[in-house]
Structure formats: structure tokens, C-alpha cells
Design a protein around this nucleic acid. Structure first.
Lengths: 341, 341
DNA sequence: CTGTTAGCGCGTTCAA
DNA sequence: TTGAACGCGCTAACAG
């Protein structure tokens, strides 16, 4: 029985050329005699030859592999990113290895080791927390890194600035305009930089328009559905409970809506809810979730391009998208009715 | 400037042993003198040496890479699978390369080529449609494949039988018991075997209990949110519209609930809805979605174990999990009230 | 138990 | 323009 995989040599033999010519043909070196090239291609086609990537990587020193490190693939925010990152990879003939799909630090360590052993040409670290040591480690090994919200980029560290404040300001002012005063914020995990920035932006935007945010209305979550459930339960039991809540991500907001339903709080009548991310499911919630959009596709493509050396620095916008989970504050509603009568 | 990556040779030199000894130490060959082994390990540790996977694969003929081909990573059904598959991979020191994350056939072709070039040791193809040619292709290259619902497994084709019928029967009988008679089914794409099997099971289970399913109540979708929206719009405009609908997956069901809201149909009062898959979000819908559970973790681990040669054949169960999206049929409700009065 | 050595499949010089 | 030969970093005989 023949070997399952052809090799360059066998192709060369069958095409009556040297291995060098086959190699050149495959790599589209322009100086190859077109006649020979065609002959080689025919043989490759006929034999169903696929070059061995490991041998290529070994000989060339380039793996053509990009790593993608993602914190929680079960958060619907990430699959979008994975999808477009992988698509771009395929288009540019890069392979993508996916790492550390969950929070487990042991698995993270394994993933990182695998990527180094695999000699990835670059790596995108998305929405982690504690990525600093990782970045140092990769850079020390000469592999370039993309990460969000880093302060001092360099030749080996690419980044993008995300303007959280714009979208969050829109959200806050939208709620204020609807008459809300007691507006709560359910934050993400404190160690996550992106979460901290969102929280800061919220506080700043509240202050801008002279609104207080008492400590009780600022609760920390962890960007999960459960966090939303828990947070709104606490918030709802407050003596002076909020009439609106802004969440650090959509998953949290969905948890809030779900638990509000359980508590017989009607969204938006009794409680206005705003999310963050605009995951695809947001518009399919009941009611459809008003949220701050941050383009997943945008982030993924910037990450990819950054790793491919296009140094063009860009920024990511965030914008409020109005749907149906917010409305007039309860008090405001009554006033209007009164005035009408 | 020193080379960024150490090599086996350099480690050997620094540890005063041969490369073979270093290699044996790394691969935990038990016959290595513990003293030497320790010395080698110290050097490896000190120098931060990571073996080059490509060289290893080339020399050993084993890539220790498993492929995972998934049709739509943005369907929340899949991230769970990816996560547990990858976790198991990490635990067994396998790398996972993720392919064809979307429906685009061009990208699928690229992904397949990459996997072959990468000489994956095995591949799991999950919920595709048109996987037969892929299976043949991989098997011809001597790589073993795992796929769901295949008829004739063999040494190179592992599979698992999924008992769709059990869960779907529970769903149908649950609805029938609640007094529903006009029960619609929103199917998945016809070319998808798993979708076809679900539809067949539904029809059989209806017939079993003497319920008709007129052609108009059997509509084909494509397992997306949009498909649910579209299908329920059609169904709702029927003169004799269904009082309950079973969906071929949860995404479809969520689309149905969303559009029902738009049409002012209250779920479950006016329309009972049952999903299929039990994605994590199902219980966070409003109302929480009653659905047929099919364990994503179960499927992923069976796939992984099957590829690791544990030939233990297993089956996957499906079971109805009752939540709040179903209730008595409208007629039945009135009868009860009448009888009470 | 250890070291020497020959490849694994490919890219890439260097001559021709 | 083409081909012969070497080396990428590692594993696996084989000999000692």
C-alpha cells in the first residue's frame, strides 16, 4: 500500500524536475519556466498532493499561524470575533489556533505554551485581564501581540483605543432625558481593564450632568448572566431602588431582564435597562435590548490587520442603539398624564 | 543578539548530554537516569526552552493536532462544544485547530486543506450537512473522523447515535396533554441530516397519538433567529393558526418568541413554544424556554474520546426540560374556566 | 542507560 | 532558469 501522503520528492520525480523546481512552483517564484510549472501543477493536482506544513515551517522559520486568545467563548460577544478573525486568516492563508477558551488559569498556561511551541507569528489577546505578563512573555520571544486598551504600544505590541465614553454618555444622557435620576450601574470584574474603563466612563458621564451615583447603586458583577440576576436582586431590595440600570455588558443585561421578570418588575415600565456590546441576540430579547454597540467585526479586523503589520492606528467607536428596554421614568410618566388631564 | 528560540542541541550542550537524552527526558522515557534528567530539566527551565512542535511533528509523524469543523460558531450551541472539546484537548496535550466557522463553502475548502496540510491526527465534523465527501476525503488520507448520525462507522469513521425521538416525543405528548391539536413544526435546513431526523421524529410522534400535521404547519427554516421570525409570521397569518409550535433548534424558537411579541401574541397564553438543544440562554428567555435538551458537553466529549480510539460506543439522549413557554391550549383554558363557574 | 547518526519534508543557497 | 546539497529541530534506530 502506497504511503498516504505524497512528498515533494515524489512529485519532483513524477514531473521529471528537481525538488527545488517543485518548491518554487508551489511558492509561485516567478522565474520558473511556465512549461515546467504547468507540468508540476498537473502532477500535484493528479496526485492530490498537499505540502506538509510542519516541514515548511521548519525550513522557512515561518509558521503562518496566528494565535487568538479569548477569555470566554460562551459569551456570545466572542464567537463573532472568532468568526471574523478566522475568516480573515483563511483569506490571507493564515491558520488560526484558538486558545484558552475559558477562565481556567491552568488551561490558559497550556494554551500559551502550545502557542509558543507552535511558533505562532503573532497573537491577539482579547478581553482578558491579567494580560500584561502574557504580553511580556510573548514579546520576549519576539512574537508580536495585539491587545485592547494598552497604554504603550511598540513594534511588538499593537493596540487600539476604544472610546467607551461616547456610547456610555449617550446611554446616560438618554436615561436622564427620560427623567431617570437613580441610575444604577452593574460593572464587570474589577481586574478587567475594559470593565474598569466602562465603569469610570459611567461615573464621569453621570457627574457631568450633576447626577449622584450613591455607592449602593454601583455593584460589581462578572459579565455573566448570573451576575445580572444577582445584581438586580440586590438592587431591587433597596429602599430607594433605581428606576434604570446600565450594564457593563449585554449578558449582564439579559440576566437583569430575566430576573426582573421573576420579580414582576416590568421592563421597561418599572425598570429601564441598557446593555453594552450589542451582541446579535440583543435585538431578539423581549423587549429588544437598548444597548451600546461596539463592533465585534471591527475589533477582530483591526486585531488582524495590526498583526499583519499594517501599522495604521485606528480607534473603535461605541454608540447607543435605541431599542425598547428603556422608557420614561415612572414619576415622569405620571406628571405627563396629570398635565394632560 | 542571541537567537530567540533555544534548540534541543543547545540544551544538550549546556547540560553536557546528548540530544537523545534531552529528547528522552522531554518525552518522559522512563529509562533515563534520574540525575541526568534533573540536570536537563534545570537547563530547560533556566533557558525557558520550548520544543519546536513542527520539528517534532516532522520527526515523529504525529502532529498531536485534532481538527474541529463546526458549521456556525455564532449559534450558541457550538461554543459549548468548542469549549469542552478544547478543554479535553489541552488536558491530553492535543492542540485543536478550528475550521470553517461559517457556512461559506470557500472558507470550508480552505479549512479542509489546512487541516490536511497540518496532518491532523483526527477530526470531528459537527452538524454540517454535506459532510459525506469530507469524510471520504479525510479517510482516504488515513485520518479518522468523528461525525454525528452516520450509518456505517468503521475503523476510520466514529460516530454516535442521537436519540432525537425520545425528547421530541416528550415534547409532543406534553403539548397534546395540554390540549394542543394544531401543533406546528419549524424544521431546519433539509440538507442537514440532524435536522431531517428531528423533523421525521416529530411527524412520527404526532402520528403515534393520532394527530394530523397538515402541510401548512410544517415549515422549513434554517436554524437561525431570522428563520424563526419568518416562520411564525407565516404561521400566524394562517386561517387556522397553530396554538403550539415545536422548533428544530433553540435559535429558531427565540426568533419565534421575539416575533410573537411583535405580533402581540403572548407566549405561552396564545402560543406555546418548544425549542431544541437547550442552549445556555434558553433559561434566560422571557418566558424561560421549554426545550429538548441535548447535551453539548456530552457530544463534545464523545467526539473527543472517539477520536482517541476509545471505541466504546455510546448514545446520546434527549430529554424535554419544562420551563415556562408552554401552557394549556386556549380552548382548553376556556373549558376549565367554564366548568369552574 | 547513553550517545551517534540518519532521516522526517521542505526551503534555500550556490554552481552550473 | 534549473538542480544538487545542506540544514531547519527533533525523534528513533542502532551501537556501545
Amino acid at each position: 500500500m502506497a504511503a498516504v501522503h505524497m512528498t515533494l520528492q515524489e512529485i519532483a520525480k513524477r514531473a521529471n524536475v528537481s525538488t527545488a523546481t517543485v518548491s518554487r512552483t508551489i511558492n509561485r517564484v516567478p522565474t520558473v519556466n511556465p512549461v515546467l510549472a504547468r507540468r508540476v501543477r498537473r502532477v500535484i493536482e493528479k496526485e492530490g498532493y498537499y505540502p506538509n506544513t510542519h516541514a515548511r515551517a521548519l525550513a522557512s522559520g515561518q509558521s503562518r499561524i496566528l494565535g487568538l486568545l479569548v477569555s470566554e467563548i460562551t459569551n456570545p460577544f466572542f464567537p463573532e470575533i472568532v468568526e471574523t478573525f478566522a475568516k480573515l486568516g483563511f483569506q490571507h492563508n493564515y491558520e488560526i489556533v484558538l486558545g484558552s477558551i475559558s477562565q481556567d488559569p491552568r488551561l490558559l498556561a497550556v494554551a500559551v505554551r502550545q502557542m509558543i511551541e507552535r511558533r505562532v507569528d503573532g497573537i491577539a489577546i482579547l478581553t482578558f485581564g491579567g494580560e500584561d505578563p502574557l504580553i511580556k512573555m510573548f514579546n520576549a520571544r519576539n512574537v508580536s501581540v495585539f491587545a485592547v486598551d494598552r497604554d504603550c504600544p511598540g513594534p511588538l505590541l499593537r493596540t487600539v483605543r476604544i472610546d467607551y465614553e461616547h456610547g456610555i454618555r449617550e446611554a446616560v444622557q438618554h436615561l436622564a432625558a427620560l427623567g431617570h435620576v437613580r441610575i444604577a450601574f452593574i460593572a464587570g470584574p474589577a481586574h478587567l481593564k475594559t470593565a474598569a474603563l466602562r465603569k469610570d466612563a459611567f461615573e464621569r458621564c453621570m457627574e457631568e450632568i450633576g447626577l449622584q451615583v450613591p455607592p449602593g447603586l454601583l455593584v460589581e458583577g462578572d459579565h455573566t448572566l448570573q451576575a445580572g440576576v444577582k445584581a438586580i436582586s440586590e438592587l431591587a431590595s433597596l429602599p430607594d431602588r433605581p428606576t434604570a440600570v446600565v450594564c457593563s455588558n449585554d449578558l449582564t443585561a439579559i440576566g437583569v431582564m430575566r430576573q426582573a421578570f421573576e420579580l414582576s418588575l416590568n421592563v421597561p415600565r418599572d425598570l429601564s435597562v441598557v446593555g453594552f456590546d450589542d451582541i446579535p441576540l440583543a435585538q431578539f430579547m423581549i423587549p429588544p435590548l437598548t444597548t451600546v454597540q461596539m463592533s465585534q467585526i471591527g475589533i477582530a479586523s483591526i486585531a488582524f490587520r495590526a498583526l499583519l503589520n499594517s501599522t495604521k492606528v485606528q480607534a473603535i467607536e461605541t454608540n447607543l442603539v435605541l431599542r425598547c428596554s428603556t422608557t420614561l421614568a415612572p414619576g415622569r410618566l405620571r406628571t405627563v398624564q396629570h398635565w394632560r388631564a
